[in-house]
Design a binder for these strands. Sequence first.
DNA 1: GTGTCCATGTTGCCGGTGCCCACATCGGCG
DNA 2: CGCCGATGTGGGCACCGGCAACATGGACAC
Lengths: 219, 219
Amino acid sequence: MGTGNMDTTARKVDTVNMVEGPGAARRYHHGNLRAALIDTAVDQARAGGADAVVLRDAARRTGVSHNAAYRHFADRDDLLAEVSSRGMAELEQRMRDRLADLPADDHGRPAAARLRAVGREYVHFALAEPGLFATAFACGRPEEGAPGQGPYGVLSTVLDEMVSAGELPAERRPGADLTCWAAVHGFAVLCLQGPLQELSEQEREAQLDGLLERVARGL
Amino acid sequence: MGTGNMDTTARKVDTVNMVEGPGAARRYHHGNLRAALIDTAVDQARAGGADAVVLRDAARRTGVSHNAAYRHFADRDDLLAEVSSRGMAELEQRMRDRLADLPADDHGRPAAARLRAVGREYVHFALAEPGLFATAFACGRPEEGAPGQGPYGVLSTVLDEMVSAGELPAERRPGADLTCWAAVHGFAVLCLQGPLQELSEQEREAQLDGLLERVARGL
DNA sequence: GTGTCCATGTTGCCGGTGCCCACATCGGCG
DNA sequence: CGCCGATGTGGGCACCGGCAACATGGACAC
């Protein structure tokens, strides 16, 4: 078991969806199956959440027989974990992109604005990619990783910036990350699968603004 | 379809687990199958979350053939919705119980203490009954019901009390419920399936205290 | 060049599930 | 007393996750 140690940053061979014309010699060995399967599984997760990640169907779509997947993943959960990592990475990237978009000449309380932007993007990602977002957290494994990485790392960094900028007393820093994360995550979950589904986009955005404001005030 | 209109507040006949001794005449008609199936399904959800709610197994445990369930539920989702309602009801009840436990002679800011108690119990329930809690929110249907009912209703009432008691400016009331709910729900979810699983109970409680304090401060 | 080995992919199979069908049973009604 | 509709039964289908045995062919030693 534990076959999943191929180089994750694999060469981006476009082996997926090779045109299988009559003359095209179909290779017996796929060459990049693991990565291709993960791509397909991510698509499944995007479309329907964790439950939609189905090994047999993924293999079928990838043009390979079922059971081929078991050469690269111990079981379905192993594949799900990979999808979860992808989801986390994409969420983190979007948050970082959003930060990069912020104008540098922000007057007033720039670090606080960064915190708001990060929180808003967290929710926006969850609403834009509900399936992937849910799958990212559906994985039971605690997502081991260097602290300071992942979405939590981004949030943490921004809070540290607030302390440096004098916008947050240092003695209030411990625990602040968790409060921000919980509020934003809870809002996203309640919007997705909870009782806030019916909110119009405008209402949602207004409520989100209110939430971010209150959270920042309470830090 | 839509057979699910039996009186939900059904008589509590103890038809489950009847001793089927050799002399006990086993009735062809169960008499209370719907309620018994829901009970079993709730047990399944308690044990393993929404995925553990399995129609065939529930029927088996209830001592009835599969397919019998389809006389009472349109499909699995229909049964899940019922489990969800049960979970919501139990959560609400625990919150109300907790409120009732509070001493009436609370000095200082009694309504704020009630808010903290409600929030704490929300998280405690989620941690004590992770499967049922998850299933309660896993149901896609927006949980139609009179506003002011359910866990949200309890929270809402307490916030109204805070306004009446002068502990919360009326202009800050709108949106406060959502912020509280999101923070507490997010904390619970992150503890259950997220990256906060590894926290010891003491750390968790400390973080929860901090969160409740910050949220209250930001209201 | 050639022969071997083993990672990779294939077919076959099993138990389990959700859901549909036709049939069996029984209680209440005329 | 006889019928009928509500309730429960058995069988069947498609699909899934996971094991086992077999097939393929690329890489590497010689």
